[in-house]
Design a protein around this nucleic acid. Structure first.
Length: 572
RNA sequence: UGGGGCGUCGUCAAGCGGUAAGACACUAGCCUUUGACGCUAGCAUUCGUAGGUUCGAAUCCUGCCGCCCCAGCCA
């Protein structure tokens, strides 16, 4: 992992007395305790266990950063394990996308790519061990009856009438289950724990179900498949995982995992649960994201408005910005927290401010004729690429009699003294070149302003004058003679509500202005050289990137990754 | 009414008995050839609440209150 990321996780420093005060989250605190007691011989070996049934989103990025990041920090490694215990829902195409996204984020599982299905044989053996111990049994209850027998949150459940079958009978029945002698759903293997437990997970949970489905890796070898609860803890144990980090929803499954491991007397990882990541104005629910795709509300899983990793990548987010965001958020057990999307945006701006070259792009063009500028003259100016980075160099821009400026940079009458853009009779600076003063606005029959007539001050060449007069406004511009046409896509929050997730009818909160497509935008010619994956700043607008999906040789399409902060917009 | 968890600034989050870090957001100002960036200042007399212990409590104890998760042969 990059050294930048290490910095993020450095302990904060107490500046008052100069001494370092470590402030660690609860997971790192637990690991420190283990290292002190020697419980895992100072080894930290984690795993990230996605189910290959969908695309990774930014919520998963948190889990990835925690599992991979913490292991790395402690000199350990992380396994990637696909939890593929339900063949009806999983597919290899998702696995490929998941691996691509994890790599993009900057993490590496080395040669430790595993599957829960790698352990189907071992899991079967383990199940036999539990049957022989008399703590697992084959049940004939239907799914419906089982629900009935389970009881409720406040009432104890009833034991299955098949709970006390002999070990021999259970062994025989379980083998027949495996051999396909029963119909799908006809029987299950259950752990024999406690139907009166306050923890529903301990009320004789199902370990195996009969399901004739072709598994994407094991084919038709099995007609019984382990449940997640039965497979997960043992998979961790088999891989000698020391710290199983997962989200809060598995908190009350931990007693069950502990129980299985204790019964089996095998390596026993420590599970710790942290709160999932929620972000304002968007959703981090695989199910709901799928709805957006299937209802064609968004382009696809990689729509730049989507919080999927493929979506934010296409939007122009960098992996580093995502990692920084997650690191700044921290780790806690507080549920229902909603991270401010403004922090995510800040992390991107903060990075791109340092790394992205500046360019000029007029997204809503208004033609300007500089009446006192020679008709055929074209002047060359050096334009600095990044004022904060001397090594970024510069480029040429070419000024001429006719240019485009932004429609939003002109009003006929300046509203007040604080307004310092262009207005009739007002003077502004054109970035890198000259001062111009507006003399006249030309309108069409409907009264729309279609062209401006301005005069320039030859003395202001380079952006200042000998008399040193102050010009507060600086506008970006593009010459008409060399402007390149482009399409620009402006994105806003996908949802108009801060927490759309709290309603089931979350689709009602879709922001109808989440995408604005502008055509006929005029960009400076050097922008033609930009590559997919490169970020650049459109001066005074924000950070943009080439859209990887719709850009082609004949058509340039830009995505706005994030706007620049705009204190003027707030004042207005 | 069972079990599990959580309550510190608008948001996220430190703090682990010695008198409330930081970040984002926000506000005001400075700077500025991006109304960006940068810089300066402000922003919790108070830690869900009520008691108790203590010289001293966000931190320990007790009782309340609030919020969330769990009744898939999903993960």
């Amino acid at each position: 992992m990059s050294s930048e990321n290490d910095k993020i996780n450095e302990p904060h420093t107490d500046s008052d007395n100069g001494s370092k005060v470590e402030t660690k989250d609860f997971i790192r605190t637990i690991i420190d305790q283990h290292n002190k007691s020697g419980r895992f011989n100072n080894i930290v070996h984690t795993r990230f266990p996605p189910e290959p049934n969908g695309y990774l989103h930014i919520g998963h990025a948190k889990a990835i950063c925690i599992s991979f990041g913490i292991a790395e920090e402690y000199g350990g490694v992380t396994n990637l394990r696909f939890d593929d215990t339900n063949p009806t829902k999983e597919d290899t195409k998702y696995a490929d996308a998941i691996m691509r996204d994890i790599k993009w984020l900057g993490f590496d599982w080395g040669d430790r790519l595993f599957h829960a299905s790698d352990y189907f044989d071992k899991l079967y053996e383990f199940a036999v061990v539990l049957i022989k111990k008399g703590v697992a049994f084959v049940d004939d209850l239907s799914a419906e009856d089982m629900r009935e027998y389970r009881g409720t949150l406040t009432e104890a459940g009833k034991e299955s009438p098949h709970r006390n079958r002999s070990i021999e009978e259970n062994l025989e029945l379980f083998e027949k289950m495996k051999n396909g002698e029963f119909d799908d759903g006809a029987k299950t293997l259950r752990a024999k724990i406690d139907m009166a437990s306050g923890n529903m997970n301990m009320r004789d949970p199902v370990m195996y179900r009969i399901m004739r489905a072709t598994h994407h890796r094991t084919g038709d070898k099995w007609c019984i498949y382990p449940t997640y609860d039965w497979a997960h803890g043992q998979s961790d144990s088999i891989e000698k995982i020391t710290h199983s980090l997962c989200d809060l929803s598995f908190e009350d499954h931990r007693p069950l995992y502990d129980w299985f491991l204790d019964q089996l007397e095998v390596h026993h990882p420590q599970q710790s649960e942290f709160a999932r990541l929620n972000i304002s104005y968007t959703i981090t629910s695989k199910r709901k994201l799928r709805q957006l795709v299937e209802n064609n509300i968004v382009d696809d899983w990689d729509d730049p408005r989507m919080p999927t990793l493929s979506g934010v990548r296409r939007r122009g987010y960098t992996a580093k910005a995502v990692r920084t965001f997650i690191a700044k958020l921290g780790v806690s057990k507080k549920r229902d927290t909603v991270a401010d999307i403004a922090l995510l945006e800040h992390c991107l701006r903060d990075e791109l401010n340092e790394t992205a070259d500046r360019r000029m792009a007029v997204i809503k063009p208004l033609k300007v004729v500089i009446t006192n500028y020679p008709d055929d003259k074209i002047e060359e100016f050096d334009a600095i690429n990044n004022p904060g980075d001397d090594t970024a160099g510069d480029r040429k821009v070419y000024f001429s009699k006719e240019i485009y400026i932004e429609q939003d940079d002109f009003v006929e009458v300046a509203p007040n003294r604080k307004y310092f853009r262009l207005a009739i009779g007002k003077e502004v600076r054109l970035k890198h070149t000259y001062y111009i003063t507006c003399d006249e606005a030309i309108k069409d029959d409907e009264g729309n302003i279609v062209e401006l007539r301005c005069t320039y001050d030859p003395e202001s060449r380079g952006g200042s004058t000998p008399d040193g007069r102050k010009v507060r406004g600086t506008l970006h511009w593009v010459s008409t003679h060399d402007a390149v046409d482009a399409e620009v896509r402006l994105y806003n929050n996908l949802f108009a509500k801060e927490s759309p997730d709290e309603d089931d009818d979350f689709l009602e909160h879709i922001n109808i202005n989440s995408l604005e497509i502008l055509t006929g935008c005029k960009i400076e010619p050097s922008l033609k050289d930009l590559q997919v994956g490169q970020n650049c700043q459109f001066l005074r607008h924000g950070y943009f990137c080439l859209d990887s999906k719709y850009s082609s040789k004949d058509k340039i399409v830009f995505n706005r990754s994030v706007t620049l902060k705009d204190s003027w917009a707030k004042k207005k």
